[in-house]
Simulated assay, not measured.
Amino acid sequence: MTDVSIVSEFDGNGMIVERTKVKTLGSGSFGQVHLAKLPNLISGDYFFAAVKSCAYSCSDSIQKELYVLRQFQDSDKIIKCFGDVVSFEEEVTVYNLFLEYASGGTLRDLIRRYGGSIPEPVVKCYTKMLLEGLRCIHSEGYVHCDLKPENILVFPGCDSNETLKIADFGLVRRANENHAVEGGPKELKFPGTPLYMPPETIVKRHISPALDIWSLGCVVLQMITGKLPWDGMKDKMELAIKILFSRNPPNKISKPLSDQGKDFLIKCFARKSDERWTADMLLSHPFVTATQEKSDDCLPSMEEFEACLCDMSILVE
């Protein structure tokens, strides 16, 4: 969707800056994200950024995101934030947060480009990247609370290999913080996206880093199977029962998975949160360490993967 327009606004020094809206990237309950072309006031060149915008009166969660992201500017596995600005558009006061633009889209898009199932050697590399991001988040006393493929962005990396970065910190909480639980079973309230939530979020109010580890397990399964966790649930109540009482992981794996991969998922899906491995512990698990000595060998670029698929189709014909 193309929606080119010019927005004039004041930067932190009181100077007027023109921002060109190039296209809409997405929207949600918070507002809208668009691709913008911005002037670099130091070099005089232009650069692209993703701008998350909403009415200033509803911008509390986005402003919190700015505060949190500023603490992770040195991490290459967490999305970068360039600052914020207030603009006036069509007589509405708008809050804008400037973020790194991910030209590769989201992890969900990447799963689709791989045909619905990412090869296990590549999953290992992506999982290591996500663990490094989570370790950084948890070390600062935060819990992301909404780790899912849509909130993981894909960036071109060195040698054309993709790099994953964790994004969307609108639901981030402090470790040991409580989340609100409504009165009756029909009013179940999860701290994040229900499909990716662990058992303790249903029966307890306690937020801990173990929540993100369960969500990570769901993301790893989704990379392998291409399916949403607990796919096919009719409502939150049915989902809650499944999460609480099922002895199986959220997805059945219909393809071979290494013993290391199975053990890694067992560590992520421990039903008791205090038995779940931490991000630091999982970074030493053989699933992510066995092939990491030379990352170029374990992580083909999308171009290489698509070329391989093309070669295979020629052979079939």
Rank of each mutant, 00 (worst) to 15 (best):
S43H: 05
F98S: 03
L147A: 11
S258Q: 01
I16L: 00
W230T: 05
P229M: 03
T127C: 04
M233V: 08
V316E: 14
L41V: 15
G170W: 02
E200L: 04
L188F: 10
S61F: 10
E304P: 00
G116P: 12
E177K: 04
L134A: 06
R108H: 08
F264C: 09
G28W: 09
A167M: 11
A270M: 10
I42N: 09
S43D: 01
A49Y: 02
E303A: 11
E306R: 04
D11H: 01
I137V: 15
S215D: 03
Q63Y: 07
T193I: 09
V122E: 04
L282N: 11
K21W: 04
A210L: 05
L107M: 05
E90D: 12
R271T: 05
I253W: 09
H138I: 06
E306Y: 03
G183D: 10
N178T: 10
V33G: 06
N178P: 09
S295H: 04
R19S: 09
S29H: 12
I79Y: 10
S87I: 02
G232K: 07
E177S: 14
G133C: 13
A279L: 10
R135E: 13
S208F: 06
V94N: 01
K80M: 08
G115T: 06
L38C: 15
C218G: 01
S246H: 09
Y126N: 00
P286V: 02
Q222D: 07
D159F: 15
T2A: 07
E100M: 07
K252A: 14
V181W: 06
A167P: 05
V203W: 13
L228W: 04
G31K: 01
D84R: 00
H285S: 01
K128A: 15
I241Q: 14
C54G: 09
L66I: 10
K64M: 15
D259G: 07
L195F: 04
D146G: 12
R205T: 14
D45R: 06
S117M: 13
F287I: 05
T163D: 08
M129C: 03
E100N: 06
E304S: 08
D212F: 15
P39Y: 05
N13T: 07
K77V: 02
Q73P: 04
G232D: 03
K165Y: 08
D212S: 10
C158G: 12
Y67A: 08
D296Q: 08
V288E: 02
L188N: 07
L171H: 12
S273I: 06
Y67P: 02
R70W: 11
E182F: 13
G184H: 10
G217L: 02
I118P: 14
L216N: 01
E65W: 11
I111S: 12
I241E: 13
K227A: 13
F169H: 10
E187V: 08
V316A: 14
H206Q: 11
Y56A: 03
E120D: 04
V123R: 00
F305I: 09
I111M: 11
G170L: 04
